[in-house]
Amino acid sequence: MKHTQLLVGLVLGAAAAVPAFAQSCTPKVPADHLVAAGKLQMSVNPTLPPQQFVDEKGELQGLNVELGKAVARKLCLEPVFIRMDMPPMIPAMQSGRFDVINTGMFWTEERSKLMYMVPYAQQAMSIYTVPGSKLKITRFEDLAGHVVGIETGTYQERKAREYNAAMVAKGEKTIDFRTFATASETTAALRAGQLEAGINIDETAKAFEERGIAKIWVSGLNGTDITLAFRDKTTAEAAVKALDELKAEGVYDQLFDKFKMTRLQNVKNFAIRGPGPAPK
């Protein structure tokens, strides 16, 4: 009798550990395609409002967080978020620490050869200063000779350095770039007078401006797709179907309206974009 009671208790305990939504459905991604069976593990850099950020209670919020949860539920998987800075994300995913990079990663041809990238939104870059700055900026070239902060290991750093190289080739002064691990650190350094300007994605710069700690001078630079990036093709294909369903149900549009971000333009169906990793 005691043995039976113990067995029942173990079964009930295991059921209680499974999220409620997963108890009534079967995972749509086989266990051997996931880092951990029954879980969709996603890396997130929660320093980019309104994409992803930590609220006053220490809880993750933002478009990518809610969209990640919605995709996981469609796949009947438990959403798990792993907080980390952007630079180590790609090697960490390749080494099998998690399934998805969910941090608004810009699409590039080079990255598409390393991961299965699924575009889901669009973003561009802004140049901003502190309010009341004496530096007046109407174009990227106005940053020549100035100290500018930017997140390291990001698309915006790469494009900014490309712009700078082109400027220098034409005889302009070089930009003195100072790199930081997060957008918050960049803005903190700007407010402390260590920088003259900062560069980040439009929506994050807008969030800082709405808080009264930044002034945007130029926006919409070098717009391109941002993506969910997957370690495994089967998982990526399942996520594509989930996004299609969320779009058809109106959830996708509701989330973009809520967080005031830019939808993927002219999309009928989501898809993996690019060749994907070379076979091992």
Rank of each mutant, 00 (worst) to 15 (best):
I82F: 13
K260Q: 15
E59V: 10
N200Y: 03
T187M: 03
Y163A: 11
E210K: 08
K69C: 12
R161W: 11
I90M: 07
E237F: 10
P46C: 14
G220I: 02
K233T: 03
Y120Q: 09
K134G: 04
G9P: 09
G274T: 04
G58M: 13
T262G: 10
Y120M: 14
R161N: 10
D32I: 05
P27E: 09
P19S: 12
I216F: 03
Q123H: 13
Q122D: 09
L77P: 04
A17G: 12
Y155R: 06
A207D: 07
Q265Y: 13
E110M: 12
Q94A: 09
S24F: 08
A181Y: 09
G220A: 01
T262M: 09
S95T: 03
S95P: 00
K280P: 12
E109V: 08
M93S: 02
A229V: 12
H33C: 04
A17K: 12
L228N: 01
G9V: 07
A188H: 11
Q61L: 12
M93H: 04
T187N: 03
R263N: 13
D32T: 02
W107S: 11
P49I: 00
A20L: 15
T227K: 07
G96K: 02
G9T: 11
F98Y: 04
V148Q: 02
K206T: 03
F140V: 01
I137L: 05
A92L: 05
S95D: 05
L221V: 06
K113Y: 09
A17M: 15
N45S: 15
